[in-house]
Design a protein around this nucleic acid. Structure first.
Lengths: 140, 140
DNA sequence: GTCCATGCAAACGATTTGCAGAGTT
DNA sequence: AACTCTGCAAATCGTTTGCATGGAC
């Protein structure tokens, strides 16, 4: 399913290296919202030669070209989401898990206007505690 | 106006040092969404002895006790907002300015429910271009 | 063959830590 | 006086950079 993304990159004049392919493959269908380092650790298993800098370069390239979303959700790290469709996120402040939230009913959010500001995208994050961590607390 | 916050800190058993007072004073009514370093630079003018570590300690203390909001909006830095009332933010991806947005009409956002997740707070960020930067672009 | 991309290691910026001395209560 | 907080410097973490080599086109 990464064919479309590869075509887009090629169209834009970027070279399709095995590393870029590997990052795209890793991210394809991945809902874990990994950081660059998470991706690096995942890829090292198959390709111990891959470099962290390359992963950083690649995610930056993908994000800059709309193939990947940057999620500045928690302190001083960037998580990535390969699902670029409109959705929200819930962040568990206990365990750090990020959960995709697809709002059932379309509310007015996406059509908001702000005077003197050109909106490119909207990001909404719910901070709280996931089911797992709520249970953990009860059992103390 | 920082009296209420000082009382709260005292109640919680924290000492009211000149440095903590200075941070509270600096933040009081401040809508610039400063980082810890911004606060440090601002305070150094009056108190060249103040340490960056102390500022970090203080903002962490304030945030942990609900007197300050952490805003993970842009890459790898944390901005703070002393206005803890419910509102959104618009972030200009050109100049980095963060603007407070107080929605006119209360929509359903704040009463959203997520199955198996306990929402503590919601944060909504509009990414785009502020008026200034739009004008700059036109004049090129 | 040309240029862009990779891998490495060093550099960097924001934040955290350890600890001795100072200040609040 | 007790115990927390401060300031300093070093450590750490995530990310970026410079540069020589390698690979996609």
């Amino acid at each position: 399913m990464i064919d479309k993304q590869i075509r887009k990159l090629r169209t834009l004049g970027f070279k399709i290296t095995p590393q870029r392919r590997a990052v795209l493959d890793f991210l394809d269908g991945n809902t874990s919202h990994p950081t660059a380092n998470d991706i690096y650790e995942g890829l090292k298993k198959n390709d111990p030669e891959i470099s962290l800098a390359t992963v950083y370069n690649t995610v930056e390239l993908l994000a800059a070209n709309g193939l990947l979303l940057e999620l500045p959700i928690s302190k001083n790290k960037l998580n990535y989401d390969p699902d670029t469709s409109q959705h929200d996120h819930a962040y568990c402040t206990d365990c750090g898990k990020i959960i995709d939230i697809f709002p059932q009913k379309k509310n007015g959010d996406r059509s908001d206007r702000i005077e003197n500001f050109q909106i490119r995208s909207v990001r909404k994050i719910y901070y709280g505690k996931c089911g797992n961590c709520q249970n953990k607390e009860e059992s103390l």
